[in-house]
Simulated assay, not measured.
Amino acid sequence: MRASGSTATFGGLAQFDPEPELDQKRPVHAKVLFGPFCLLPTQFLLREGDRPVPLGSRALEILIALLERRGELVSNQDLMARVWPNVFVEPANLTVHISALRRALRDGRDGHRFIVNIPGRGYCFVASVDVAGHEN
C-alpha cells in the first residue's frame, strides 16, 4: 500500500512520494500526527501533547524513515543504511533502537499499533497519519 495525499519532506527526502529526490529542502513547520503523537521533523522532535518524548536521534531517524514510507515494508537493510550510513553495524543495533521506539510510543498498548515487524525482512508503520504542512 502506498500512502496517498500530502507530500512533505524530512531529512532531505520527499515523503509519501514514490520517487524521492535527495536534494529537496525540508518544509517549514511540517508536522506529522499519529495516535497521541506529533512528530516535528524539522525540529527532530517527537511530542505527546505538549510533552517532548525522550527518544534518541537514531530511534527518531528510524521513525522518520518508517513514516516516509508508511504502509510499506521498509527493509532492515534500508533502515540500517539510513541510520548508520557508510558504517557496518550488527542487525542487533537496529533491534535495540526499534525496541526503544516502540516503548516510547507504547506500541501495542491502549489499542494503538504503530510498527509491525515482518521477521527477517523489515518493519512497517501501520497507523493512520495526518500530515500538516508548509506554513511560511
Score class of each variant (00 low, 15 high):
Asp110Ala: 11
Gly111Asp: 05
Val129Ala: 00
Val126Leu: 09
Arg58Val: 05
Arg26Trp: 13
Arg82Lys: 10
Glu19Gly: 14
Thr42Arg: 11
Leu79Asp: 09
Gln24Val: 14
Leu40Asp: 10
Arg121Ile: 10
Val116Phe: 00
Glu21Leu: 12
Arg69Ile: 05
Ser75Asn: 01
Ala104Glu: 03
His134Ser: 14
Tyr123His: 04
Leu40Val: 06
Arg51Ile: 14
Ala81Gln: 03
Phe10Glu: 04
Arg70Ala: 04
Thr42Leu: 05
Gly11Tyr: 12
Pro91Phe: 08
Pro85Asn: 06
Glu72Trp: 00
Leu45Asp: 03
Glu90Ser: 15
Phe44Lys: 07
Arg113Ile: 06
Glu48Lys: 15
Ser4Glu: 01
Ile62Asp: 03
Asn76Gly: 04
Lys31Ile: 10
Arg2Trp: 05
Asp17Ser: 11
Pro85Ser: 09
Gly49Leu: 14
Arg70Tyr: 03
Phe44Leu: 06
Glu61His: 07
Leu67Val: 06
Leu46Ile: 02
Tyr123Gln: 09
Gly5Val: 07
Glu21Tyr: 11
Ala127Glu: 02
Arg109Trp: 00
Arg47Lys: 15
Asp78Cys: 01
Gly133Pro: 06
Phe37His: 05
Ser128Tyr: 00
Arg26Gln: 15
Leu60Met: 03
Pro20Arg: 12
Pro52Ile: 07
Glu90Leu: 13
Asp110Asn: 11
Val87Ser: 01
Arg26Ile: 11
Asp78Met: 02
Phe125Trp: 04
Ala65Pro: 04
Glu68Ser: 02
Leu79Arg: 03
Thr7Gly: 12
Pro52Ala: 06
Met1Tyr: 07
Arg121Gln: 11
Arg82Gly: 00
Gly111Leu: 01
Gly11Met: 11
Val129Arg: 05
Ala59Asp: 03
Ile118Lys: 12
Val116Thr: 08
Lys25Glu: 15
Arg113Phe: 08
Ser75Gly: 09
Arg51Tyr: 13
Gly11Pro: 03
Val28Met: 13
Gly71Pro: 03
Ala100Ser: 10
Asp23Val: 15
Val32Glu: 08
Gly35Cys: 00
Pro85His: 06
Pro27Asp: 12
Gln77Met: 03
His134Asp: 13
Ile64Asp: 00
Leu40Gln: 09
Pro36Ile: 14
Thr9Asn: 13
Ala14Ser: 14
Asp130Leu: 15
Val129Gln: 06
Ala8Gly: 14
Pro36Met: 12
Cys124Asn: 05
Thr7His: 14
Phe125Arg: 01
Gly49Met: 13
Ala92Phe: 13
Val32Tyr: 10
Asn136Lys: 13
Gln24Trp: 13
Ala100Leu: 08
Phe10Gln: 09
Ala127Lys: 06
Ser99Trp: 10
Val89Cys: 02
Arg82Pro: 01
Leu39Pro: 05
Leu105Glu: 09
Gly120Asn: 08
Gly11Arg: 13
Thr95Cys: 10
Leu67Pro: 04
Phe37Gln: 01
Val53Tyr: 00
Gly133His: 03
Ile98Leu: 09
Leu66Gln: 05
Asp110Gly: 05
Leu40His: 07
Leu55Tyr: 02
Val126Asp: 06
Ile62Lys: 07
Phe34Gly: 12
Thr7Cys: 11
Leu94Phe: 02
His97Ser: 07
Gln77Trp: 01
Val87Leu: 03
Met80Cys: 05
Leu46Gly: 01
Pro52Cys: 08
Val96Pro: 04
Gly56Ile: 01
Gly35Trp: 04
Asn93Tyr: 12
Leu45Tyr: 04
Leu46Asn: 01
Phe37Val: 02
Arg102Met: 04
Ile118Val: 09
Glu19Pro: 12
Val129Tyr: 05
Pro36Gly: 14
Ile64Gln: 03
Leu73Val: 02
